[in-house]
């Protein structure tokens, strides 16, 4: 429709105007901040943002106003992020591995490096989930069965080129087995398939175990240490597989946002993360907090990019 160059000029002008007007004041934030979720309401990106919403208001006295810009698996929102005014009052949720894998597949209107990431506040660790009545009690049971029946074990998961899918590919390689990955639209649909016994198991998240505690069993979680809500579930590392992965969520700003505002926002998100009540709520839902602030972002992204790109090549979702 419009060329991005033209847009860029407009935004730059707008941003310049905005900066002189509002940002310099020390009272930031002095009005509600618009927090765009590039997915629909009701998903995990929404729920975790809603958790932040309550604490933000309490700590900083201003509202986080959440709105949604779904489409293209997040691409629609991210491709428009840099067109928004960089006045510190516009922020957007971002998800890994989406923002790394998608731009490498095709032109989706944004590049990973064009996004100004300021904080990664949590991740939902990958986990192998089976239903309560499954004959598989441990991860070893699954591996043994898969070794004697290559390709017969089916795992549901959310989408392709996603955290679930890349974890499945990595696991198959490390364990030397072949399993079949069945992609569903979102975690909700993939859990439904598991509960209805349409598949053998699920490459899901720890949040699935929290939400459906009485119906499913976690066999292993992809974390450094065991999740506080599931003290009996081993990590992949304990079982000898070097997998620490999941869907990371964070916050980005338009790239016209000035440095001091980025740092300010980064430390504000960090303060919410440091609140024990927030941590408690998030962990109850099966999430795990991480603290990657604005300064540490580059190192974090470089490391993640390498791992995700390798796995995505293995999975055949990028060339």
């Amino acid at each position: 429709m419009f060329t991005s160059k033209k847009r860029g000029i407009f935004t730059a002008l707008a941003a310049a105007l905005a900066l002189t007007a509002s940002v310099a004041s020390a009272e930031y934030p002095e009005k509600p901040i618009s927090y765009v979720i590039p997915f629909g309401p009701g998903g995990e990106s929404d729920i975790t943002a809603r958790h932040q919403q309550a604490f933000f208001k309490k700590k900083f006295g201003q509202d986080l106003v959440i709105s949604y810009k779904p489409g293209g698996g997040g691409a629609v929102g991210w491709s428009q992020l840099n067109d928004m005014p960089g006045d510190g009052y516009n922020i957007m949720g971002i998800n890994l591995p989406h923002i790394i894998v998608k731009p490498l597949q095709k032109d989706v209107g944004f590049k990973t490096d064009e996004l100004a990431l300021i904080y990664m506040f949590h991740y939902t660790p990958d986990a192998v989930v089976v239903s309560d009545d499954s004959p598989f009690k441990t991860l070893q049971d699954v591996i043994d069965h898969a070794k004697s029946n290559p390709g017969k074990i089916t795992f549901s998961g959310s989408g392709k080129g996603t955290a679930n899918h890349l974890a499945q590919v990595t696991f198959d390689k490390l364990a030397g087995v072949k399993t079949t990955y069945v992609a569903f639209k979102g975690t909700g649909a993939s859990v439904t398939a598991l509960l209805g016994n349409q598949v053998t198991g699920q490459w899901g998240y720890t949040s699935v175990g929290a939400k459906h505690a009485d119906k499913v069993r976690l066999l292993a979680v992809a974390m450094e240490q065991r999740h506080p809500r599931f003290p009996d579930v081993p990590t992949f590392k304990e079982l000898g597989f070097d997998i620490v992965s999941g869907a990371y969520r964070g916050i980005a700003v338009p790239n016209s946002t000035p440095e001091n505002v980025r740092e300010k926002l980064s430390s504000m998100i960090g303060q919410i993360n440091a609140d024990p009540a927030f941590k408690q709520k998030m962990e109850n839902d099966g999430f795990a907090l991480v603290d990657v602030d604005y300064k540490g972002m580059k190192a974090f992204m470089d490391e993640k990019r390498q791992a995700y790109v390798a796995a995505a090549k293995e999975a055949g979702v990028i060339k």
């Binding site: 407009f10 935004t11 002008l13 707008a14 941003a15 310049a16 105007l17 007007a21 005014p85």
Partner: peptide, 13 residues
């Protein structure tokens, strides 16, 4: 309903 309707780049900052 808090819909972020476009404000117009020509006028706003």
């Amino acid at each position: 309903l808090l819909v972020p309707l476009p404000a117009g780049r020509l006028f706003t900052g």
